[in-house]
Design a protein around this nucleic acid. Sequence first.
DNA 1: AAAGCATGCAACCGCAAACGA
DNA 2: ATCGTTTGCGGTTGCATGCTT
Length: 254
Amino acid sequence: MVKAPYYDKNGLKKGAWSPEEDNKLRAYVERYGHWNWRQIPKFSGLTRCGKSCRLRWMNYLRPDVKRGNYSKEEEEMIIKLHEELGNKWSMIAAKLPGRTDNEIKNHWHTHLKKHAKHNLTRSKGKEQLSDASQCQRKSQIRDSEVESVPADSTPSHQILESAPLSPETRSSDFSSMNSHHALPSGAIWAVDHNSLASSGTFAKFSGDFWTEPFLADSTFAQHNYHSPSLEWESILPYVSYHHDGIDVFWDLGL
DNA sequence: AAAGCATGCAACCGCAAACGA
DNA sequence: ATCGTTTGCGGTTGCATGCTT
C-alpha cells in the first residue's frame, strides 16, 4: 500500500512512516506547533525532510483529519465543487472539514471520476455497458458494502488521536495565535498560556512542559517511546520572556 | 492454488506563490 | 527590485491488497 522505507543519498528517510516516527512528529507539533517545517525534523529527532513531515502531519497526523468512508453528501459536494473549481483540490478540501486535498484527490481519481463520467454518458443518451461502467458497478458494490457502516463510526484510534486537541486549540493554530498578539519585532513566536490552560490541551503533561525536555515526555515514555537525550534549552536556541500569560521567543541565532 | 491484473492510497516530486531580508 | 528560503499545491509514482482467471 505504501512505499517501502529507504534512505536517499543525503541520508534522509523516505517511504512509509513508522509509528515511532509518527509519535515523534505528533509529539513535537502538538507541543510546539509547526513554526518551521524545515527545522522540525532536526528538533524532533527525525531523519525526514521538512516537506515530508509537513505532508505527514497535514494528511495523516493532524487531529482534525477525518478518516474513513465518504458520506453521500460529501461525495456530491466534491463532484459539485469539482465542476465549479476544477482540480483545485485545496479549495475543495477547504469546503469539506476534516478532509485533506490529497485524500479528496485520491477519492476523486479512484471513485468519483468514474461516477462523474458515468453520469455524463448517461446524460448524453442511452447508457452503454462500457468497461468503465462495469468498473463502476464493481466499485458501487464495494461502496455499498462500506456505506452500510454508519458515517460517524469513527475508528476508536481516531477518537483517541483526536481527543487531546480540540479544533480550537490544535497545534496549527499556534500560527494564528501569533497574529492575535502584537509581537515585538524580532519575536519569532509566542504562546498564550491562558489559552493553553483553558483548553486542557496540555493538561495531560506533568508539570510545566515549558521547563521540561520535550522528548522526555511521559506520555510517550509509556508507549516505549525511545527518548534521545535532548534538552529543551539545547534544541531551541531562543531567549524567552513571559508577559501577560504569553511566552515570547527570540532567535538568538546560536 | 497460483499467477497475473486491477485498485486504492500514502508518499514523492517539481513547480509556483508567498514572504522576508 | 532582487534574491533566497519556506510553504502549499497538484500531478504522479510505487506498492500492498484484493480480485480474477
